[in-house]
């Protein structure tokens, strides 16, 4: 109740205006305006005067182009599901802290801070057919022929997984460890076994966080770009929609068509977000109440 009253209070004065102005101008000019300009440009094809959907029609009538949507989905969806399940499992297991937690989390975030380029270069070497991974597996007699994990679909999945997993794990860990531990204890005292505690108490409380994590990981995976080039077949099985947009813009210098593809990419991400938001609505509206208050 108090929060509502607070929102109605208006403390916007000259100081607030001048403090907010630089950042607001920046975001409006450099983020909102280019977006709108991109949409506008996409409707102004290079070879035609005036408004036209020619760029979109061209994109959706060329299998080489619209196929990228399917390719990108087929990379992003499995990655997101695997990342989410493993991160949930690990974060739930670590919710009360683990041995050497700080060191472990530091190593887990290494892929984030090293950046995707270095990560891809390392994966190329380590998981390559001559790399240590295959050498060890062959040496141990587990496999005869090396797993081909680079320059294909699997390579991009691997890179995406390593990029997104730490991110998703840390998000969920923060979310889960913010849930009042006495909820779990009281459920145990009421006769619930650990698996019932998870199903009936913790999972419903984690679900909103899980939905957000799903959306974020999916959206990020959907824009996969450098690892799809370095670890995949950028002209074939892993030609994602980002690559299509990039090629239009910087290889064919057709900014208008590139903008159209960027808009399609944005819409796909938006669609996924909407699905998640609708799904969250269906979860009990009270589910988010009181969580993490204490």
């Amino acid at each position: 109740m108090r929060a509502v009253a607070n929102d109605e209070k208006n403390e916007f004065d000259a100081l607030a205006f001048f403090c907010l102005l630089p950042s607001l101008l920046y975001v409006l000019c450099m983020f909102v305006y280019p977006f709108l300009y991109g949409v506008y440009l996409s409707l102004q094809p290079q070879k035609i005067d005036g408004f036209s959907f020619a760029n979109y029609l061209a994109f959706f009538s060329d299998p080489y182009q619209y196929g990228t949507i399917w390719i990108t989905f087929s990379l992003a969806i499995p990655t997101t599901i695997v990342v989410l399940l493993l991160a949930l499992w690990l974060a739930y297991g670590m919710r009360r802290g683990i041995f050497m937690e700080r060191t472990v989390t530091t190593i887990l975030i290494m892929p984030i801070s090293l950046g995707v380029i270095l990560l891809s270069e390392g994966i190329l070497g380590f998981y390559g057919s001559q790399g240590w991974f295959n050498q060890v597996l062959i040496g141990l007699g587990i496999i005869k022929e090396p797993f081909i994990l680079t320059h294909n679909y699997a390579g991009v999945m691997l890179a995406l997984f390593m990029q997104q997993f730490p991110f998703c794990f840390l998000m969920l860990l923060g979310y889960i460890s913010g849930i009042d531990p006495s909820l779990e204890r009281s459920a145990r005292m009421l006769g619930a076994t650990p698996s019932i505690v998870f199903r009936r108490v913790m999972l419903p409380l984690i679900a909103p966080g899980l939905a957000i994590a799903f959306a974020l990981v999916f959206v990020m995976s959907f824009a996969v770009f450098p690892s799809a080039i370095m670890l995949g077949q950028p002209a074939g099985t892993t030609r994602t929609i980002s690559i299509a947009a990039y090629q239009k813009a910087f290889e064919q210098y057709d900014m208008s068509a590139a903008s159209a593809i960027a808009v399609v990419m944005g819409l796909c991400q938006l669609a996924a977000l909407l699905v998640i938001i609708l799904f969250r609505r269906r979860l009990s509206p009270a589910a988010t109440m009181g969580v993490g208050k204490r």
């Binding site: 009042d180 006495s182 909820l183 204890r185 009281s186 459920a187 005292m189 009421l190 006769g191 108490v201 419903p204 409380l205 009990s284 009270a286 589910a287 109440m289 009181g290 969580v291 204490r294």
Partner: peptide, 14 residues
């Protein structure tokens, strides 16, 4: 089969 009442009640918010 013991019952417990917690300091912050620990009611399931959902």
């Amino acid at each position: 089969a013991f019952g417990m009442v917690f300091q912050n009640y620990a009611l399931f918010p959902h």
